[in-house]
């Protein structure tokens, strides 16, 4: 795990910035995002709708929290959890051969593909490093 203070700050800015951007791009079009979630054919219609209204706000709050430093460890843990779920969802979608937009950045989203797995894996790595740095802070 990375312990360099400056690298960890850079990780927080990157992950925080990405999630604020992702969240805001979905907040402006909740119905479009609801349809994106429904297109994965995993969640029932009601769950897709509820997630579309709520998830972008949680992403923005976590992003702000990572950048500001308030609740940064819990935000990093929560975002790591989200990223693991996203990775599973993307992999399952690719295996099922469903050709859809990922919905990650609202109308600017790309397709669900292997590049997305790479992006999310890098973000997960950054996010886990931020979370585990709480041990170093304590020492």
């Amino acid at each position: 795990m990375i312990r360099n203070k400056y690298i960890l700050i850079a990780f927080r800015l990157v992950v925080g910035g990405m999630f604020i951007w992702a969240g805001v791009s979905k907040i402006i079009d909740p119905l479009g995002f609801a349809q994106n979630i429904a297109n994965y054919r995993v969640f029932p219609e009601g769950a897709s709708f509820f997630l579309a209204l709520v998830l972008p706000w949680i992403e923005v709050i976590c992003g702000l929290s990572l950048i500001s430093g308030i609740f940064r460890y819990s935000s990093a843990l929560l975002l790591s959890g989200f990223l693991v779920v996203f990775l599973v969802l993307i992999t399952v979608t690719i295996i099922r051969g469903i050709d859809i937009d990922c919905g990650c950045f609202g109308s600017l989203s790309g397709k669900v593909d292997y590049k997305l797995i790479l992006t999310d894996s890098v973000l997960l790595f950054f996010s886990l490093n931020i979370f585990f740095s709480h041990k170093a802070d304590r020492e």
Partner: peptide, 27 residues
């Protein structure tokens, strides 16, 4: 840690549902 996560989730749910209340009604 869990308390803070619960707080973030709670805030997200309240803001998300509150701001999109009209969409919720339509749904």
């Amino acid at each position: 840690l869990l308390l803070q996560i619960a707080l973030i989730l709670f805030l997200g749910i309240i803001i998300g549902l509150g701001i999109n209340f009209s969409l919720l009604q339509k749904y």
